[in-house]
């Protein structure tokens, strides 16, 4: 079997950046070695720095730069206004859409769509059911381990692509409450868009000072950064079609470069892994892949010094 080089995808920006920051970021991404770019608001319906038409215009620019653009959608859709925006995105007629809620799947059925991290596909029966509705690509649930990926890769319908989240802070939970507003004693209805002040989220540590979570509006992320760089050879062998990188405020382009070089075989993963560690705001983790608590960091690569491998592991 000839192994194909997987494509690289950049996930949607989870944080609330200014319009200028967003435009500058994507101007750089246009020249970066990612083939697929997900754009749009996935976390908070109140964030209005970019309207749907602005995302569509940005999508055109990225498409002109040769990117395969996918419009991403909210994970938590509550209000009628949220559904109106969703319908508009789903009916855009130009770009493929990533569903993060079954409401989006309903609107997208019959055409090609991506099932994002908000859609729970834990078994082949679920995958096959969505495949019959037009699913083109699915994102493997982040909390699941290697063995389940192996099993699902073996039985997935041949025309379905598998995308794997390989780098970034892990989206762990979504709430009706805004935790950034709560931190500042503001009400969600009158939040003043306070998450603007935290372009990488707001770090939560235990009372012992151990970094644990990261607050991003209504979303709770991991403080640690999921990093599967050293698993790349195995992911390629498993026939993963797309590798997803989550954007962060700093170093996203360098991170993309590293994954690009490693996927092309221009260097061993372990040669770059220490660099990636340095780009993680806190540290890396990969427990989910090894069927362990997600926060843990497991044998980064064979031959690593045990003292390093166990460093900072709870």
């Amino acid at each position: 079997m000839t192994e194909r080089i997987p494509r690289l995808a950049l996930g949607a920006i989870p944080y609330y950046w200014s319009r200028e920051q967003i435009e500058l970021f994507y101007a750089q991404v246009a020249d970066a070695p990612v083939e697929i770019v997900y754009i749009g608001e996935t976390v908070c319906a109140k964030r209005k720095e970019m309207r749907t038409r602005d995302w569509l215009a940005l999508g055109e620019e990225l498409a002109a730069a040769g990117k395969d653009v996918v419009l991403s959608t909210l994970v938590l859709l509550e209000a009628e206004a949220d559904l109106r925006t969703l319908r508009r995105i789903c009916a855009n007629g130009r770009f493929m859409v990533e569903a993060n809620d079954m409401g989006a799947v309903r609107l997208l059925q019959g055409e090609s769509f991506v099932a994002g991290p908000g859609i729970n596909i834990y078994n082949d029966r679920a995958l096959t059911r969505l495949a019959a509705l037009g699913l083109k690509r699915w994102v493997f649930p982040v909390e699941l381990a290697r063995d389940t990926l192996v099993a699902l890769q073996a039985i997935r319908p041949a025309y379905i692509e598998t995308e794997m989240f390989v780098y970034g802070r892990i989206p762990l939970a979504y709430s009706a409450r805004c935790f950034t507003a709560r931190h500042l004693n503001l009400q969600k209805d009158d939040c003043g868009f306070c998450c603007h002040a935290y372009p990488d989220g707001l770090l939560v540590s235990s009372q012992e000072g151990a970094p644990f979570l990261n607050l991003n509006g209504i979303q709770t992320q991991s403080a640690q950064t999921y990093n599967l760089l050293t698993q790349l050879p195995e992911l390629i062998e498993l026939g993963i079609d797309v590798l997803r990188i989550g954007p962060q405020r700093e170093h996203t382009l360098e991170i993309i470069e590293i994954f690009d070089r490693v996927r092309r075989g221009e260097g061993e993963p372990q040669d770059f892994d220490c660099m990636l560690e340095g780009y993680a705001p806190v540290r890396a983790c990969n427990g989910y892949w090894h069927d362990e608590p997600g926060i843990s960091q497991h044998d980064t690569y064979p031959g690593m010094h045990p003292a390093l491998a166990s460093q900072d592991v709870l």
Binding site: N120, E143, I170, A173, L213, G294
Partner: peptide, 21 residues
């Protein structure tokens, strides 16, 4: 439950098991 159930991995992140799995 303050989180959207079915999409909460806080438990598996800290302890390896979640309501979903």
């Amino acid at each position: 439950c303050v989180m959207m159930e079915g999409r909460c991995f806080l438990s598996s992140f800290a302890a390896g098991e979640s309501p979903n799995s």
